[in-house]
Design a protein around this nucleic acid. Sequence first.
DNA 1: CTGGTAGATTGGCGGCTGTCGATGTATCGA
DNA 2: TCGATACATCGACAGCCGCCAATCTACCAG
Lengths: 106, 106
Amino acid sequence: MSIQDQGCCPSVLAAPLGAEAADELAAAFSALADPVRLRLLSLVAEAGEVCSCDLQEPLGKSQPTVSHHTKILAEAGLITGEKRGRWVWWSVVPGRLDQLRAALGG
Amino acid sequence: MSIQDQGCCPSVLAAPLGAEAADELAAAFSALADPVRLRLLSLVAEAGEVCSCDLQEPLGKSQPTVSHHTKILAEAGLITGEKRGRWVWWSVVPGRLDQLRAALGG
DNA sequence: CTGGTAGATTGGCGGCTGTCGATGTATCGA
DNA sequence: TCGATACATCGACAGCCGCCAATCTACCAG
């Protein structure tokens, strides 16, 4: 309805969607626009916590590729990594997916 | 193209997400992974029905570019176009966005 | 200190994507 | 029939993306 809505909850159903909000949403959806990242996200979501070494095999990708995808998901705010010793433990960021769900009209 | 032969509701939160479902979802999110398409979608959603000619100016893109984006959104099942005379009227496909929302953990 | 392991970074390759000008196709008014 | 309009398609360009081998950094065990 009004321009103010874009401050809080930019929604695809509220026009005109500001260029700024559109850029940010597009960046978030770009992180989800890859089958490997979606499967990676599902693995992290189900396990609660996973280290990168346990992602490599189920994804069937090389170590640099897995690292590349975890980085993109982390930069999109979808997962977060905590380093413990030699391992990085990944977990989903609570609320971030809900945020994107809301942008689709929830 | 069978969209959801995957049973009911492939979700990012249910691992392991099948390769097939991951491809399908990634394709859908790819359609949303562009700021121009998000703004286009918001314009269609608010207006209920818009012809391509009325999208060109608010988007600030050329006619071929607008046509390109409407095609991608249509192929993703997000909008549908009906030709009336010289014009094509676009409207959002009801339920498709809800389907994607559900995939994010609704 | 040395060797081994987890993960990030770099560099390069092939393919995909957004963009627009030019052109093709369908429709309508005169 | 002729010209104008709305839209799709084509061709080409620049930029981005996914991928892996090689390399670098950080950490731990002995």
